[in-house]
Design a protein around this nucleic acid. Structure first.
Lengths: 337, 337
DNA sequence: TCTATATTGGAAAGCGCTTTCCACCAACAT
DNA sequence: ATGTTGGTGGAAAGCGCTTTCCAATATAGA
């Protein structure tokens, strides 16, 4: 339990605590080489491991960055997490992870835990921020007042530190392309209403539909995951009473996969009987069949840019990350109704 | 920067530091209700957030658990992470995440960072532990000496704290089933040699083949990811000079998906020209077409059990988690060569 | 009424570091 | 020889908490 402490090392090397600290944990002052060598040798011999907690307390900086995601097992978030993790390594920071999905208050809890741990920054991916949760907002405000940096992935450009993601634009572009391909009947698998990502994408869908003089034939809410897509698609299909040729716009790839499975379970085949589109272009799903029409997003880069923004005070605000429409088999050319 | 401190709260409530501490952060002694109320009110009014670093220092327990995975964007690991995360929440612990894949020494670095942060426990998923890295082993030994708990996912039963996973057994069972279905020609897409998970599964494959009087027609190493599977399958196919009807045993689902894509790029179709199997039964891939023959593993539960083992000293060592062979289209009945 | 016994709040000593001073000594200029 | 520098290592004061010990009060037993 009683690990080797710095003062133990100092004693063993016959120097003062201050000197040992200066040698082992970088300081502006560098003691003479022979002394330094003695300290280093003592540290190695004793197996000294600096206590990051104590350092944090003394330096008032923890070397921690908090990452809040909706569901870490969702490939969307895990790709982002990977990017954050990689970038954090460059800054020699450790990543504190919180996955919030099951509980209502989980996001709030995560943020206060991070505040308590005095993480240098908090990155929010897939948040309900700024919409439905004033408590959260207050917690974040206090955190920022105390010097913490808060970075949102996919927030509105201009609203604080954020990596803007072209969710709305991408969604709109997707619909425009589909309309150009001759589609006229669209249903929206909207996911949960509290998630900003989902809301923005739905906004993009409806905006582009309106612009094209169309209206969605159905808008169905559900979970943000595969099951959500599955159910939503089935409910949607019922509502439509089996009318063929409709295009189901899912707010993410995983839901789209679920939707296709849901339809298949009903004996409906994609793209023959109905079209389905996703969003994100998840790498693992790229070999899926039918190949998914979707909007490509560089997810890992999103995470990296967020981490840069969080950890480097001189980092400029990044330009919006735009999605790229990818038309594939699940809603391909020529399959229009 | 200067957040509200406990002594600030105490002063504002007109009580001593000790009392404030006893009221706000659970202690065996509970001050009188009227005083307690005053302290709580002061804490809320001032917006007090306890400093977890300072608490950790004083209590010598951090409330942190470290999780080391090979690649967080891999669904195998992210599912485990989800399980760990959920269980950790029950213990009110925060999860420190490290993803090690890119660099050689990353796992060692992660462990020493966790040791430095004095995490209460470290969970290793997909580790090179005990095989190729004596440095790592030494670091872990020291960590344990200082009272840290180390839990391995998929270690050998009996070797310390581990959630044993039937990697070898599952792999063997898969091969037996495939042999029973009439297959005789197998190639192994072995993944990287340093990863225990990959090694164990390969051992299971070869063991069962030997038992059946067979030998793999090829063993190909590669990365543990989709690209690895892609390349490995193509190299394998070349080695085999296009001989049809071989069954490619990939050490995980993601590699299997890559393998199918790699073959498809060569004009080879699964299961008509070759069979492919995976391992894990990743949820997101369950709707894949052709449906993947694989070994089902309850990944999230793996993570949960590891977290229980790590955080609850009274937790009994869990029984091995066994995989369940799932024969699906990619290597189905009747498609035997 | 007086002493023995809980019960309570507070003072103070850490937890393991960083960092500001300060005392010291050599080297230099005067 | 004396007074300055500049560089060095060390003493000590925190960082924000927890927890042990102590003194003070309240409660009970005789």
């Amino acid at each position: 339990m009683a690990a080797v402490t710095l003062s133990g090392v100092a004693r063993h090397a016959g120097v003062s605590l201050a000197t040992a600290s200066r040698v082992l944990n970088g300081s502006s002052r560098r003691p003479a080489e022979d002394i330094a060598e003695r300290v280093r040798a003592a540290a190695i011999e004793l197996g000294y491991v600096p206590n990051a907690q104590a350092q944090a307390l003394a330096r008032s900086s923890t070397g921690l960055v908090g990452l809040v995601v909706h569901d870490i097992s969702d490939p969307y978030f895990s790709s982002i997490a990977r990017g954050v993790q990689h970038a954090a390594r460059n800054y020699r920071r450790q990543v504190l992870l919180a996955s919030t999905d099951p509980s209502e208050s989980a996001e709030h809890d995560a943020v206060s835990a991070f505040a308590s741990h005095r993480t240098d920054a908090i990155i929010l991916a897939g948040s309900r921020r700024a919409h439905s949760d004033p408590d959260l907002e207050q917690e974040l405000a206090r955190y920022q007042q105390n010097g913490g940096r808060v970075v949102t992935i996919g927030g509105q450009p201009g609203s604080g530190l954020t990596v803007p993601v072209g969710n709305t634009d991408g969604a709109a572009a997707l619909v425009s392309r589909l309309v150009a391909l001759g589609n006229t009947r669209f249903a929206i698998l909207a996911g949960p209403g509290e998630l900003n990502t989902a809301r923005d994408r739905v906004a993009g869908f409806t905006g582009a539909l309106t612009a094209a003089g169309l209206e969605p034939v159905a808008v169905v809410r559900s979970g943000f995951d595969r099951e959500g897509g599955f159910e939503a698609a089935q409910r949607c299909w019922e509502e439509l009473r089996g009318e063929r040729g409709v295009c189901l716009l899912a707010v993410n790839d995983v839901m789209a996969i679920g939707a296709i499975a849901g339809l298949r379970a009903l004996g409906v085949s994609v793209p023959a009987d109905a079209l389905v589109t996703g969003f994100d272009d998840i790498p693992t799903l790229r070999d899926y069949s039918p190949a998914l029409t979707t909007v490509h997003l560089p997810l890992e880069r999103l995470g990296e840019e967020a981490a840069n923004l969080a950890l480097n005070p001189d980092q400029e605000l990044p330009a919006p990350v735009l999605g790229e429409v990818v038309i594939r088999e699940s809603a391909g050319a020529g399959s229009a109704s």
